[in-house]
Computed example of a mutant assay.
Amino acid sequence: MAKPDLIIFDCDGVLVDSEVLSCRCLTEVLAVHGVELGLDQALDLFLGRSTAAVFQHCETLGRPLPQQFAAELKASVRAAFSSALAPIAGVGAVLEGLLIPHCVASSSDLDRVSFSLALTGLAAHFGERLYTSQLVRRGKPAPDLFLYAADRMQADPRRTLVIEDSVSGVQAAKAAGMTAWGFVGGSHYLSRDGKALLREAGADRVFERMAEFWRDPERPHGRG
């Protein structure tokens, strides 16, 4: 697409390298409640999804989680992030030079998104332009959150670009009528074929380094 009128960034796995950390916390807290789930399974099932999806999944397994699970998971994630969370390499430079209106739309809750961005020095790039699944009835892969964000930013969905790292996020962007770029530079894709997953989900482009944000490494570079 030509330069968009709005760019929506997912947070986890796009702005901050958090997916492995948070999914590891998820498996550990689930184990406390008798639900065994490996890290790869957690990534496959819940990458880009909200905590509500975890509750729903366990309910279908016949292992409903107690309400305190959400608070326990939040505490575990916050501790892990405090000691090890880092921004995605190169994302600060992209945001520094970004003149197009931009915001965040994340399946995580507002407290976690705000904490993550503050911890990694990225908060100033977004201010209060943070939208989360708490604000809509249906989370990703439904289009509700992206449509809500575009509406708040007064942008046409057809002129909106979404940067996502998850299948559910790409599906949500496409369902909203937006252009979706898949990003596979997070550590959770070191041993998984993220490019194939996101292309199959409908991504219009997939890239793996923020240095490639405005150019396509698959396009030959030469005269003409």
Results as ranks from 00 to 15, higher is better:
Ile7Tyr: 11
Ile7Cys: 02
Ile7Phe: 04
Ile7Ala: 04
Asp10Met: 13
Cys11Trp: 04
Cys11His: 10
Asp12Lys: 03
Gly13Lys: 05
Val16Cys: 13
Glu19Met: 08
Val20Phe: 12
Leu21Ala: 07
Leu21Gln: 07
Leu21Pro: 11
Ser22Gly: 14
Ser22Tyr: 10
Ser22Lys: 04
Ser22Asn: 09
Cys23Trp: 00
Cys25Val: 02
Cys25Asp: 01
Leu26Asn: 03
Thr27Tyr: 02
Thr27Gly: 10
Thr27Glu: 01
Thr27Asp: 02
Glu28Cys: 11
Val29Ile: 09
Val29Arg: 00
Leu30Gln: 05
Leu30His: 09
Ala31Asn: 08
Ala31Pro: 12
Ala31Val: 07
His33Cys: 00
Gly34Asp: 07
Val35Asn: 00
Val35Tyr: 00
Val35Ala: 02
Val35Asp: 01
Glu36Asn: 11
Glu36Cys: 05
Leu37Trp: 10
Leu37His: 10
Gly38His: 05
Gly38Glu: 06
Asp40Ser: 11
Asp40Leu: 07
Asp40Gly: 07
Gln41Thr: 11
Leu43His: 03
Asp44Ser: 13
Asp44Leu: 14
Leu45Thr: 02
Leu45Lys: 15
Phe46Gly: 01
Phe46Ser: 02
Leu47Ile: 08
Leu47Tyr: 04
Leu47Glu: 07
Leu47Arg: 06
Gly48Trp: 00
Gly48Ile: 01
Arg49Ile: 06
Arg49Met: 12
Thr51Gly: 09
Thr51Ala: 10
Thr51Asn: 14
Ala52Thr: 06
Ala52Met: 05
Ala52Gly: 13
Ala53Pro: 08
Ala53Thr: 06
Val54Ile: 14
Phe55Gln: 01
Phe55Met: 15
Gln56Trp: 05
Gln56Tyr: 08
His57Thr: 02
His57Asn: 10
Cys58Ile: 07
Glu59Gln: 15
Glu59Pro: 08
Glu59Phe: 11
Glu59His: 14
Glu59Ile: 10
Glu59Val: 09
Thr60Lys: 14
Leu61Asp: 03
Leu61Arg: 15
Gly62Val: 10
Gly62Thr: 11
Gly62Gln: 05
Arg63Gln: 15
Arg63Phe: 09
Arg63Ile: 06
Arg63Lys: 14
Pro64Trp: 08
Pro64Ile: 00
Pro66Gly: 14
Pro66Lys: 14
Pro66Ser: 12
Gln67Trp: 02
Gln67Arg: 14
Gln67Ala: 15
Gln67Val: 12
Gln67Glu: 15
Gln68Trp: 08
Gln68Ile: 13
Ala70Tyr: 11
